[in-house]
Computed example of a mutant assay.
Amino acid sequence: MKLYPLKFGPVPVEREWGGTALFDKLGKTFKVKDEDGNECMLSPETPVGESYEVADLGECGESIAANGFLAGNTLEEITETYMEDLIGDNPSQYFGTQFPLLVKTVDIQGSLPVHVHPDDRTAFERYDALGKKEFWYIMEADRDAAIYIGFNRDLSATELFDRCLDGTIKESMHRIRPEKGDMIEIPAGMAHCAEGKILAGIIEEPSLIAFNLYDGKGTAEERIAHIGESMDFIRLERTNPADCISRKEGIVSDSDESTIECIRLAPEGTRSTGLEEEDSVSVFLCTEGDAGFTMEPYSDSATCRVKKGEAVVIPAAATALTIKAGKQGCTLISAKLREREEHDSYTEQG
């Protein structure tokens, strides 16, 4: 049977810095299993920091299809079965059977540690895993919220080490006040953190490798180990925050790994796109309003609808896609993969 626009049930991730905004503001409900293995609903008072909307992270978070004939199957099972038809010929060679994108919504009510993620090559060579680049869309943020990205001047390795140990590392970082509609790209190797009340959607690589440079809680030995691991890939040079922040419509990031686009449609507006030349799966995260998705070829004319905080996966086999906004219009963030010229991924060499 042919693939179709895929929607998945949200997967909750409890965090000490999380809150209840994913329940209260996005209307999410989460199915979990109790101690006896019985399915139940997660209490809306649970501090959930992240909701995985599209995830292939095994025991750490696995999405289950919620619509169509594949409902009940995990994303891993669907990827292994459909491979090129789902993620594309070139991506399947690079990523193997792991779905290559992670989509999540986050509710930050406290402080995230200052941390950094390795690039793909470093992550493969050391950890047999993917690195991580992140793309954030700010849905809501209080006036006292802050995001720290990169350094406000060139740092030496010695100063980085000392500031991480004495807790003054944020003094050397750019502090921005996020606002609704901000889009923030955080490349691999860039130190970052966040604090205050922030509701955001994030599209990133499916990796859990992170090194905490400072969180105010870990021991000095733990901090030294994390700093040492990141020292040869962290970006010590001064960062220009303007290069990381955007509010424009259209293509907002076009890197060697992926292309990310911000799409805004007026109430009941429509966008139709031919996809015959594409060789990549696409994910769409709805950050405002709601929208319906239909694709070709697909014999079922049913529309897959997503609202604020939900995502849809459009398989690489699609030849055409139509998006129709709801009565309030919509804002969508889409991501698709770029062709990799050198197939040096961990799936090929592991």
Rank of each mutant, 00 (worst) to 15 (best):
L155M: 07
S156K: 06
T158P: 06
E159S: 11
F161V: 02
F161R: 15
D162R: 15
C164E: 01
D166M: 11
G167Q: 09
T168C: 02
I169R: 00
I169M: 04
K170L: 15
S172E: 08
M173P: 09
H174W: 04
R175T: 13
I176A: 09
I176T: 12
D182Q: 06
D182P: 00
M183F: 00
M183S: 05
I184P: 00
I186R: 04
P187D: 02
A188G: 07
A188W: 03
G189W: 04
G189M: 05
G189T: 04
M190F: 13
M190A: 11
M190Q: 07
A191Q: 05
A191D: 04
H192W: 03
H192E: 00
H192I: 03
E195D: 09
E195Y: 10
E195P: 03
G196T: 10
K197M: 07
I198D: 00
I198P: 00
I198R: 00
L199G: 06
L199Q: 05
A200H: 01
A200E: 11
A200R: 01
A200Q: 05
A200C: 15
I202W: 01
I203N: 02
E204A: 12
P206I: 06
S207W: 02
S207L: 06
L208G: 04
I209S: 05
I209N: 06
A210H: 12
F211T: 08
N212A: 11
L213K: 09
L213R: 09
Y214V: 08
Y214M: 10
K217V: 08
K217A: 12
G218Q: 13
T219R: 11
T219E: 13
A220C: 09
A220K: 13
A220S: 12
E221V: 10
I224Y: 08
H226C: 12
H226D: 15
H226E: 12
G228S: 14
G228M: 06
E229C: 07
S230F: 10
M231G: 08
M231H: 06
M231Q: 14
M231D: 09
F233M: 10
I234N: 02
R235G: 04
R235T: 14
E237D: 14
E237C: 07
R238M: 12
T239L: 15
T239V: 15
T239N: 02
